[in-house]
Design a protein around this nucleic acid. Sequence first.
DNA 1: GCGTAGATGATAATAGTTCTCATTTGCAAC
DNA 2: GTTGCAAATGAGAACTATTATCATCTACGC
Lengths: 143, 143
Amino acid sequence: MDKPQPDDLKDAGLKSTVPRLNILALFKSGQERHMSAEDVYKQLLAKGDDVGLATVYRVLTQFEQAGLLVRHYFEGGKSVFELNQGKHHDHIVCLQCGHVEEFYDADIESRQEKVATERGFAVHNHSLHIYADCNKKACPHKH
Amino acid sequence: MDKPQPDDLKDAGLKSTVPRLNILALFKSGQERHMSAEDVYKQLLAKGDDVGLATVYRVLTQFEQAGLLVRHYFEGGKSVFELNQGKHHDHIVCLQCGHVEEFYDADIESRQEKVATERGFAVHNHSLHIYADCNKKACPHKH
DNA sequence: GCGTAGATGATAATAGTTCTCATTTGCAAC
DNA sequence: GTTGCAAATGAGAACTATTATCATCTACGC
């Protein structure tokens, strides 16, 4: 239930191949919303799907270009992907446990747009990352 | 005029060595506000300063820890440094020419704080990067 | 001036990601 | 259902940004 929809791939002009279906299914399974290439690779291997790391990188990039996934560049070097569910949002990253929480604030959004256009820029996209401690009571979100 | 102040280094608990003075002087010269390690390395070599790349990386990290510089993680993998002049600000990065413009918006700042505390997070720092086109008239900011 | 802890620089090592290319596979035409 | 071929895959090499190693050098207090 919640099988991958090959249509997503077809619509994006991509052949529906085994690795692509597996990767899409992993994101749709919703276990982890935010995954790096390495994360995806390991999860697939753990599930028994035999896939190459190069393919994971390739497919993630294709999915990003197709709009199926969104890529984030958090601090720490590696980029992280999440399913694109249409609604833009920003992120709070816990520095203790790495937990990522999403939020959306209309005021922040509109002021960003304002700031950019005031300066003559045409906004493509933006990233707002708040790095913080969630640890009120010893980091509820386990690593 | 605008020579490096060894005091900055001493205050940070760092010996005032030739490479450190040169790197600090480069940032204070104000030619480029935002530079990657590679940028700094090349600029110094171009100026005739003989320095090792490893030293540049080390010194930039030390300066960041000492609060002399601020490090930014823009899209594209490499991190970028700028002189820490006390006033926090965010960035608009031009996707065409790489030009970086700074801005500060008190409303955005306060709403970020609000969003985070509402969710029980203690903010350490944040990064807001707007990626946009500055090209009103063929990208005024040359690469 | 001297001694030493700390700094440097050449190079090796590492992490994340992309490239190469021989082999395999999806899929459309027969 | 087979066939053909462009596109996709996977193993590993290559690449980029950065950090670690370590023998040599240097700033600076005595």
